[in-house]
Design a protein around this nucleic acid. Structure first.
Lengths: 102, 102
DNA sequence: ATAGTATATCAATATAATTTGATATAGTTG
DNA sequence: CAACTATATCAAATTATATTGATATACTAT
């Protein structure tokens, strides 16, 4: 593995990696990822699943969207979220590894 | 991927996964992992590499040790830390993926 | 034994993240 | 257009995490 040394480039990579990992290292956001792994859902369904206030769910979705983990699609009043399949299989494999570990 | 539903077992798995991800989603701790990827190092070498106070480094090492990401070995006054190779290749692959993404 | 070195722990502070409450925006329906 | 619904945003409060400063522990050497 490349080492995060003290060059400008790797410093940037390091902070991007941290942002990505922080995005997935939250209980509610992991639940969202798992829920969406079943397929696209609209925000109201995610709210119902998590049993959390709508504005809080919206906040967590934004963090996952910012990290390109989720993509969103608007249809009338509803916004549908789904897992960004581009490159996401690695993340899924990693989670599988984590889950199997315990 | 298995979904973190509302059973007791998967709730436990979820919080364990979160603890693991929180452990690696920190800039200084990622630097430690990368540094140790070159091989076993003693605490004083890690302190020198990170340019952080010794007690802070000790704190970060403890978090990584608690998650079985690192193992430690005492030799006289020194404590040597290294990556726990058991299962760790998955983590390395994941980090490689993250680094390549950007 | 005494002094010195490396590492760990503890309490206090600073900083960052999550959550809550209130409100705004955008689309829909009558 | 007025009322309604779904989602997003913003500021404030709460909670978690990182950092600092002081000190303890464990080992070594004189």
């Amino acid at each position: 593995m490349k080492c995060f040394c003290k060059t400008n480039q790797s410093t940037k990579q390091l902070s991007e990696t941290v942002l990505f990992l922080k995005a997935v290292s939250d209980e509610n956001r992991l639940k969202i990822i798992c829920f969406l792994n079943k397929g696209e859902k609209c925000v109201c369904e995610i709210v119902e699943f998590l049993e959390l206030p709508q504005n809080l769910v919206s906040h967590h979705l934004k963090i996952l969207r910012n990290q390109n983990i989720l993509i969103s699609r608007k249809n009338g009043l509803n916004v549908f979220y789904s897992i960004n399949q581009k490159n996401i299989s690695n993340i899924i494999n990693f989670f599988n590894f984590l889950i199997l570990k315990s």
